[in-house]
Computed example of a mutant assay.
Amino acid sequence: MDIQAFKNIWVVIETANGSVKNVDLELINQGKFLAESSGEKVVAIVIGQNVDEAVKTVIAYGADEVIVIEGENYQVYNTDSYSNAVVKLAEKFQPSVLMMGSTNNGRDLLPRVAARLQVGSAADCTAVEVGEDGSIAWTRPIYGGNLLSTVTFTETRPQIGTVRAGSYGKGQPDSGRTAEVIKEVIQTHADQIRTKVLEIIKSVGQGIKLEEAEVVVAGGRGLGSAENVSLMTELADVLGGAVGGTRACIDAGWMAPQLQIGQSGKRISPKLYIGCGISGAIQHIGGITSSDIIVAINKDPDAPIFEIADYGVVGDLFEVVPILIEEIKKVKAR
């Protein structure tokens, strides 16, 4: 395999109700840094139906080129049709890097693509950078998030991996940007499609998703019980944010598993993060370092979280948070 023949950074775009998922916009932004060292392009792969708005969005956020596959067969994600489309594109255009958000669809699609292309893949990464030899270094947590492993593919191309949401920030959109749009026609025969979507059931979860929230209020072991999670919810509500927690909260059954923040949970990048009763274990810190502003509330002045916090309040969260809620309400009432 002549790896020098493979060029450009590809991001497979996933849409929800016509909108591009935040994680893909984050990867386009990081893709620009990956491409800088080699002078390559960031190419967005958009598959679906009625994708004009998605194409405009990825161009505004920095895609240098967009490859579009559109049709009724791609209206709803399907493992067989989507993997066939991405494999055919990769064989034709030979990208150097192929990445996607570590979503349910991303975890399903890219390993299948890697297997068909007979290359390796890195799953659920928290960082993707250019390594010393020019290959891509994929960093992923192992052993429940207690260790980090770096994976590289030095002899095969494309280099494939999925990356967690919140690992990077989005760039600033520029509606005036232009980019080349290439439309490809790839059909998947009906006898190759082994699964069919019978019904789409909307999630029963309420509120703003952690990975999309601009404000996140997180609770730790200091909450003491499941009943006290309501205090976090109240603070998040007045700020228009989402609630999350540390692994200790999830293991204790105080919060649902999808609310876990950290290396073995979700990485977040809100404008404001407020940690309540959180000591600051390295596994949790790994999930919040992309936050613009970190506020810590803890009665232990030596808690490690204060070392990375922009603002720290040494005090009992059960005294501080209610006061904070009331003061925010007063400001909003003005």
Rank of each mutant, 00 (worst) to 15 (best):
residue 303 A to F: 03
residue 323 I to L: 15
residue 300 D to F: 07
residue 297 I to C: 00
residue 304 P to G: 02
residue 314 V to N: 13
residue 286 G to P: 03
residue 310 D to V: 00
residue 321 V to R: 06
residue 308 I to S: 01
residue 288 I to A: 03
residue 314 V to I: 15
residue 300 D to Y: 09
residue 318 F to H: 06
residue 293 I to D: 04
residue 317 L to M: 12
residue 324 L to Y: 09
residue 317 L to I: 14
residue 314 V to A: 04
residue 322 P to M: 14
residue 288 I to G: 04
residue 323 I to W: 00
residue 293 I to V: 15
residue 301 P to Q: 12
residue 308 I to H: 01
residue 309 A to V: 01
residue 315 G to M: 12
residue 321 V to P: 10
residue 322 P to S: 05
residue 294 I to S: 10
residue 325 I to P: 08
residue 287 G to I: 09
residue 296 A to P: 00
residue 296 A to L: 12
residue 305 I to N: 00
residue 303 A to Y: 05
residue 322 P to G: 11
residue 309 A to S: 12
residue 302 D to K: 13
residue 323 I to G: 00
residue 289 T to W: 04
residue 290 S to R: 14
residue 325 I to T: 10
residue 296 A to E: 06
residue 304 P to Q: 08
residue 313 V to A: 10
residue 295 V to C: 10
residue 323 I to T: 14
residue 324 L to I: 13
residue 323 I to E: 14
residue 320 V to F: 12
residue 317 L to E: 11
residue 286 G to Q: 08
residue 293 I to Q: 13
residue 318 F to E: 13
residue 301 P to V: 01
residue 321 V to H: 11
residue 286 G to V: 08
residue 311 Y to A: 11
residue 296 A to M: 08
residue 296 A to W: 02
residue 296 A to G: 09
residue 297 I to H: 05
residue 323 I to D: 15
residue 303 A to E: 07
residue 312 G to C: 06
residue 319 E to G: 13
residue 295 V to S: 02
residue 286 G to E: 10
residue 306 F to D: 06
residue 302 D to W: 02
residue 290 S to Y: 00
residue 319 E to S: 15
residue 305 I to R: 02
residue 288 I to R: 05
residue 323 I to R: 09
residue 306 F to Y: 11
residue 288 I to W: 03
residue 293 I to Y: 09
residue 302 D to N: 15
residue 295 V to D: 10
residue 291 S to N: 07
residue 298 N to H: 04
residue 311 Y to K: 08
residue 310 D to Q: 12
residue 318 F to G: 00
residue 301 P to M: 06
residue 323 I to V: 08
residue 304 P to E: 02
residue 317 L to P: 03
residue 322 P to L: 01
residue 306 F to G: 03
residue 287 G to D: 05
residue 286 G to K: 04
residue 309 A to Q: 03
residue 290 S to F: 00
residue 323 I to F: 00
residue 289 T to D: 06
residue 296 A to Y: 03
residue 297 I to T: 10
residue 305 I to G: 01
residue 293 I to T: 15
residue 293 I to P: 02
residue 325 I to E: 11
residue 287 G to E: 09
residue 321 V to F: 11
residue 295 V to P: 08
residue 311 Y to L: 14
residue 309 A to W: 06
residue 309 A to T: 08
residue 299 K to Y: 09
residue 297 I to A: 07
residue 307 E to N: 08
residue 305 I to F: 01
residue 303 A to L: 09
residue 289 T to V: 10
residue 295 V to G: 08
residue 292 D to G: 02
residue 324 L to T: 15
residue 311 Y to I: 15
residue 321 V to M: 09
